[in-house]
Design a protein around this nucleic acid. Structure first.
Length: 276
DNA sequence: AGCCAGGGTCTGC
DNA sequence: GCAGACCATGGC
Protein backbone atom coordinates (compact mmCIF):
# COMPACT_ATOMS: atom_id res chain seq x y z
CA UNK A 1 0.00 0.00 0.00
CA UNK A 2 1.23 3.49 -0.83
CA UNK A 3 0.37 6.73 0.94
CA UNK A 4 -0.05 10.13 -0.68
CA UNK A 5 -0.84 13.44 1.02
CA UNK A 6 -2.74 16.06 -0.98
CA UNK A 7 -4.94 19.00 -0.01
CA UNK A 8 -5.78 17.73 3.47
CA UNK A 9 -6.61 14.31 2.08
CA UNK A 10 -4.67 11.11 2.54
CA UNK A 11 -4.88 8.74 -0.39
CA UNK A 12 -3.96 5.10 0.01
CA UNK A 13 -3.33 3.37 -3.29
CA UNK A 14 -2.62 -0.27 -4.10
CA UNK A 15 -4.81 -1.23 -1.16
CA UNK A 16 -4.58 -4.91 -0.27
CA UNK A 17 -6.18 -7.03 2.44
CA UNK A 18 -8.43 -4.14 3.46
CA UNK A 19 -12.15 -3.74 2.94
CA UNK A 20 -13.42 -0.63 4.68
CA UNK A 21 -16.98 -1.90 4.69
CA UNK A 22 -16.17 -5.33 6.09
CA UNK A 23 -13.88 -3.81 8.70
CA UNK A 24 -16.29 -1.13 9.91
CA UNK A 25 -19.48 -3.19 9.66
CA UNK A 26 -18.30 -6.44 11.25
CA UNK A 27 -19.44 -5.57 14.75
CA UNK A 28 -16.14 -4.63 16.36
CA UNK A 29 -16.84 -0.88 16.43
CA UNK A 30 -19.92 1.24 17.03
CA UNK A 31 -19.19 4.80 15.90
CA UNK A 32 -19.01 4.50 12.10
CA UNK A 33 -21.85 4.91 9.60
CA UNK A 34 -21.93 5.11 5.81
CA UNK A 35 -23.97 7.68 3.89
CA UNK A 36 -25.80 6.98 0.61
CA UNK A 37 -22.56 7.34 -1.34
CA UNK A 38 -20.75 4.83 0.83
CA UNK A 39 -18.57 7.39 2.59
CA UNK A 40 -18.00 6.33 6.18
CA UNK A 41 -18.06 8.95 8.90
CA UNK A 42 -16.81 8.33 12.41
CA UNK A 43 -14.93 9.61 15.42
CA UNK A 44 -11.96 8.11 17.23
CA UNK A 45 -9.35 9.52 19.60
CA UNK A 46 -11.02 12.93 19.49
CA UNK A 47 -10.89 13.28 15.71
CA UNK A 48 -13.67 12.86 13.19
CA UNK A 49 -13.01 11.41 9.78
CA UNK A 50 -14.66 10.80 6.43
CA UNK A 51 -13.23 7.82 4.60
CA UNK A 52 -14.15 6.15 1.33
CA UNK A 53 -12.99 3.12 -0.58
CA UNK A 54 -13.14 2.69 -4.34
CA UNK A 55 -11.66 -0.68 -5.22
CA UNK A 56 -7.93 -0.44 -4.49
CA UNK A 57 -7.97 3.18 -3.38
CA UNK A 58 -8.97 4.52 0.01
CA UNK A 59 -9.26 8.25 0.64
CA UNK A 60 -9.24 9.84 4.09
CA UNK A 61 -10.87 13.26 3.71
CA UNK A 62 -10.01 16.44 5.55
CA UNK A 63 -7.28 15.10 7.78
CA UNK A 64 -3.56 15.70 8.13
CA UNK A 65 -0.38 13.74 7.67
CA UNK A 66 0.20 13.99 11.42
CA UNK A 67 -3.21 12.62 12.31
CA UNK A 68 -2.80 9.88 9.77
CA UNK A 69 0.44 8.63 11.27
CA UNK A 70 -0.47 9.38 14.90
CA UNK A 71 -4.01 7.98 14.82
CA UNK A 72 -5.41 6.34 11.71
CA UNK A 73 -2.40 4.29 10.68
CA UNK A 74 -2.55 2.42 13.95
CA UNK A 75 -6.36 2.54 14.22
CA UNK A 76 -6.73 0.61 10.97
CA UNK A 77 -3.81 -1.68 11.88
CA UNK A 78 -1.94 -0.76 8.70
CA UNK A 79 1.38 -1.97 10.06
CA UNK A 80 0.21 -5.58 10.27
CA UNK A 81 0.77 -7.98 7.38
CA UNK A 82 -2.67 -9.55 6.96
CA UNK A 83 -1.61 -11.34 3.81
CA UNK A 84 0.85 -13.42 5.80
CA UNK A 85 -1.61 -14.07 8.62
CA UNK A 86 -4.34 -15.18 6.19
CA UNK A 87 -1.91 -17.54 4.52
CA UNK A 88 -1.22 -19.14 7.88
CA UNK A 89 -4.96 -19.42 8.57
CA UNK A 90 -5.54 -21.06 5.20
CA UNK A 91 -3.81 -24.22 6.40
CA UNK A 92 -7.21 -25.10 7.86
CA UNK A 93 -9.93 -25.57 5.23
CA UNK A 94 -12.80 -24.29 7.35
CA UNK A 95 -10.92 -21.26 8.60
CA UNK A 96 -9.90 -20.60 5.01
CA UNK A 97 -13.59 -20.39 4.09
CA UNK A 98 -14.24 -17.85 6.83
CA UNK A 99 -11.29 -15.78 5.64
CA UNK A 100 -12.40 -15.91 2.02
CA UNK A 101 -15.92 -14.87 2.97
CA UNK A 102 -14.62 -11.43 4.00
CA UNK A 103 -10.88 -11.26 3.31
CA UNK A 104 -10.70 -7.50 3.89
CA UNK A 105 -11.48 -7.51 7.60
CA UNK A 106 -8.86 -5.95 9.83
CA UNK A 107 -8.93 -5.76 13.61
CA UNK A 108 -9.11 -2.13 14.69
CA UNK A 109 -7.15 -0.54 17.54
CA UNK A 110 -9.81 1.57 19.19
CA UNK A 111 -8.24 2.52 22.49
CA UNK A 112 -8.75 0.90 25.88
CA UNK A 113 -11.20 3.22 27.60
CA UNK A 114 -13.66 3.62 24.72
CA UNK A 115 -13.60 -0.09 23.95
CA UNK A 116 -14.09 -1.07 27.57
CA UNK A 117 -17.16 1.07 28.03
CA UNK A 118 -18.56 0.21 24.60
CA UNK A 119 -18.45 -3.51 25.24
CA UNK A 120 -20.01 -3.11 28.68
CA UNK A 121 -22.92 -1.52 26.82
CA UNK A 122 -22.88 -4.34 24.26
CA UNK A 123 -23.85 -7.09 26.67
CA UNK A 124 -27.11 -8.87 25.86
CA UNK A 125 -27.76 -6.15 23.29
CA UNK A 126 -27.89 -5.73 19.53
CA UNK A 127 -25.51 -3.69 17.39
CA UNK A 128 -28.13 -1.13 16.30
CA UNK A 129 -29.10 -0.29 19.82
CA UNK A 130 -25.51 -0.35 21.08
CA UNK A 131 -24.70 2.30 18.47
CA UNK A 132 -27.71 4.37 19.51
CA UNK A 133 -26.85 4.35 23.19
CA UNK A 134 -23.22 5.28 22.52
CA UNK A 135 -24.28 8.07 20.15
CA UNK A 136 -26.58 9.59 22.75
CA UNK A 137 -23.90 9.27 25.41
CA UNK A 138 -21.33 11.05 23.24
CA UNK A 139 -23.74 13.84 22.30
CA UNK A 140 -24.75 14.38 25.90
CA UNK A 141 -21.44 13.97 27.72
CA UNK A 142 -18.65 14.12 25.12
CA UNK A 143 -16.58 17.16 24.20
CA UNK A 144 -17.96 18.89 21.08
CA UNK A 145 -15.50 18.81 18.20
CA UNK A 146 -17.00 21.88 16.54
CA UNK A 147 -18.43 20.18 13.47
CA UNK A 148 -21.45 18.53 15.06
CA UNK A 149 -19.40 15.55 16.22
CA UNK A 150 -18.55 14.66 19.79
CA UNK A 151 -15.62 12.93 21.38
CA UNK A 152 -16.20 9.82 23.46
CA UNK A 153 -16.91 10.96 27.04
CA UNK A 154 -14.08 10.78 29.56
CA UNK A 155 -14.20 8.63 32.67
CA UNK A 156 -13.90 11.82 34.69
CA UNK A 157 -17.15 13.22 33.31
CA UNK A 158 -19.09 9.96 33.54
CA UNK A 159 -17.88 9.43 37.10
CA UNK A 160 -19.70 12.59 38.20
CA UNK A 161 -23.06 11.24 37.01
CA UNK A 162 -25.56 9.41 39.18
CA UNK A 163 -26.76 5.98 38.09
CA UNK A 164 -30.17 7.58 37.46
CA UNK A 165 -28.65 10.08 35.04
CA UNK A 166 -26.84 7.31 33.17
CA UNK A 167 -30.08 5.31 33.15
CA UNK A 168 -31.65 8.09 31.10
CA UNK A 169 -29.43 7.05 28.19
CA UNK A 170 -31.81 4.07 27.87
CA UNK A 171 -29.00 1.67 28.62
CA UNK A 172 -31.14 -0.27 31.08
CA UNK A 173 -29.52 -2.50 33.68
CA UNK A 174 -26.07 -1.54 32.33
CA UNK A 175 -26.27 1.91 33.96
CA UNK A 176 -24.81 0.68 37.23
CA UNK A 177 -22.01 -1.08 35.34
CA UNK A 178 -21.14 2.08 33.39
CA UNK A 179 -21.06 4.01 36.65
CA UNK A 180 -18.79 1.50 38.37
CA UNK A 181 -16.46 1.41 35.37
CA UNK A 182 -16.18 5.19 35.12
CA UNK A 183 -15.51 5.53 38.85
CA UNK A 184 -12.83 2.84 38.91
CA UNK A 185 -11.05 4.37 35.91
CA UNK A 186 -11.40 7.93 37.16
CA UNK A 187 -10.07 7.08 40.61
CA UNK A 188 -7.09 5.27 39.15
CA UNK A 189 -8.13 1.94 40.64
CA UNK A 190 -8.15 0.80 37.03
CA UNK A 191 -5.32 2.43 35.10
CA UNK A 192 -5.70 2.08 31.34
CA UNK A 193 -1.98 2.61 30.66
CA UNK A 194 -1.00 0.00 33.22
CA UNK A 195 -3.39 -2.55 31.73
CA UNK A 196 -1.75 -2.04 28.34
CA UNK A 197 1.58 -3.04 29.86
CA UNK A 198 0.25 -6.17 31.59
CA UNK A 199 0.26 -9.64 30.10
CA UNK A 200 -3.10 -10.79 28.80
CA UNK A 201 -4.11 -12.93 31.77
CA UNK A 202 -3.26 -10.31 34.39
CA UNK A 203 -4.98 -7.64 32.34
CA UNK A 204 -8.10 -9.75 32.12
CA UNK A 205 -8.20 -10.38 35.87
CA UNK A 206 -7.89 -6.65 36.46
CA UNK A 207 -10.72 -5.76 34.07
CA UNK A 208 -13.05 -8.36 35.55
CA UNK A 209 -12.98 -6.52 38.90
CA UNK A 210 -15.30 -3.99 37.23
CA UNK A 211 -18.99 -4.74 37.76
CA UNK A 212 -20.58 -5.93 34.53
CA UNK A 213 -17.27 -7.01 33.03
CA UNK A 214 -16.96 -10.76 32.58
CA UNK A 215 -14.63 -12.81 30.47
CA UNK A 216 -16.21 -11.95 27.13
CA UNK A 217 -16.28 -8.18 27.64
CA UNK A 218 -12.72 -8.31 28.97
CA UNK A 219 -11.57 -10.25 25.91
CA UNK A 220 -13.25 -7.79 23.52
CA UNK A 221 -11.68 -4.89 25.36
CA UNK A 222 -8.22 -6.42 25.25
CA UNK A 223 -8.52 -7.38 21.60
CA UNK A 224 -10.15 -4.31 20.03
CA UNK A 225 -8.89 -1.78 22.56
CA UNK A 226 -5.48 -2.97 23.64
CA UNK A 227 -4.38 -4.94 20.58
CA UNK A 228 -3.96 -8.21 22.46
CA UNK A 229 -4.23 -10.57 19.50
CA UNK A 230 -4.19 -13.69 21.65
CA UNK A 231 -7.68 -12.92 23.01
CA UNK A 232 -10.57 -14.91 21.60
CA UNK A 233 -13.92 -13.43 22.74
CA UNK A 234 -16.66 -16.06 22.89
CA UNK A 235 -20.10 -14.60 22.23
CA UNK A 236 -23.22 -16.53 21.20
CA UNK A 237 -22.21 -16.55 17.53
CA UNK A 238 -18.69 -17.79 18.20
CA UNK A 239 -20.01 -20.52 20.49
CA UNK A 240 -22.39 -21.61 17.74
CA UNK A 241 -19.62 -21.47 15.13
CA UNK A 242 -17.11 -23.35 17.26
CA UNK A 243 -19.56 -26.13 18.09
CA UNK A 244 -20.46 -26.60 14.42
CA UNK A 245 -17.32 -25.69 12.48
CA UNK A 246 -14.47 -26.39 14.90
CA UNK A 247 -15.61 -29.12 17.31
CA UNK A 248 -11.95 -29.96 17.95
CA UNK A 249 -11.23 -26.37 18.99
CA UNK A 250 -9.43 -23.55 17.24
CA UNK A 251 -6.95 -24.92 14.66
CA UNK A 252 -3.28 -24.74 15.54
CA UNK A 253 -2.54 -22.43 12.60
CA UNK A 254 -4.68 -19.72 14.23
CA UNK A 255 -3.10 -19.79 17.68
CA UNK A 256 -0.66 -16.92 17.06
CA UNK A 257 -3.44 -14.56 15.99
CA UNK A 258 -6.53 -16.01 17.63
CA UNK A 259 -8.20 -12.61 17.88
CA UNK A 260 -7.96 -11.98 14.15
CA UNK A 261 -9.26 -15.46 13.43
CA UNK A 262 -12.14 -14.78 15.81
CA UNK A 263 -13.18 -11.74 13.80
CA UNK A 264 -13.29 -13.68 10.53
CA UNK A 265 -15.22 -16.54 12.15
CA UNK A 266 -17.64 -14.19 13.91
CA UNK A 267 -18.48 -12.28 10.74
CA UNK A 268 -18.81 -15.48 8.73
CA UNK A 269 -21.14 -17.05 11.29
CA UNK A 270 -23.25 -13.95 11.83
CA UNK A 271 -23.77 -12.65 8.28
CA UNK A 272 -23.47 -15.65 5.98
CA UNK A 273 -26.36 -18.08 5.77
CA UNK A 274 -24.56 -21.12 7.19
CA UNK A 275 -26.84 -21.26 10.24
CA UNK A 276 -30.13 -20.53 8.48
C1' DA B 1 -46.39 -11.07 19.57
C1' DG B 2 -42.58 -12.99 21.12
C1' DC B 3 -37.87 -14.18 20.70
C1' DC B 4 -33.36 -12.42 20.46
C1' DA B 5 -29.32 -9.48 20.99
C1' DG B 6 -21.04 -9.52 20.45
C1' DG B 7 -23.42 -11.22 28.90
C1' DG B 8 -23.00 -10.80 33.79
C1' DT B 9 -24.62 -11.41 38.48
C1' DC B 10 -26.66 -13.77 41.96
C1' DT B 11 -28.51 -17.73 44.00
C1' DG B 12 -28.90 -22.47 44.88
C1' DC B 13 -27.20 -26.98 44.28
C1' DG C 1 -18.05 -25.77 38.99
C1' DC C 2 -22.72 -25.48 36.61
C1' DA C 3 -27.81 -24.44 35.79
C1' DG C 4 -31.40 -21.07 35.90
C1' DA C 5 -33.79 -16.69 36.90
C1' DC C 6 -33.27 -12.12 36.13
C1' DC C 7 -32.00 -7.87 34.18
C1' DA C 8 -34.09 -2.99 30.34
C1' DT C 9 -34.79 -2.03 25.85
C1' DG C 10 -35.83 -2.14 21.12
C1' DG C 11 -34.89 -4.71 16.59
C1' DC C 12 -36.89 -7.78 13.64
Amino acid sequence: MKYKFENNNVIITDVVDFSLKDTLDCGQCFRWDANEEGIYHGVAFGKSLDIFQNENTITLFNTTKDDFYNIWYNYFDLDTDYHKIKEEFSADDTLKKAVQYAPGIRVLHQGGWETLLSFIISQNNNVKRIKGIIKTMCERYGRPLGNGDFDFPTAKVLATLSVDEIFELKCGFRAKYISDCAKKVDSGEINIDEILALDTQSAKEKLITIKGVGEKVADCTLLYGFGKMDCFPKDVWIKRAMANLFPEGLPECAKNNAGIAQQYIFHYARTSNIFD
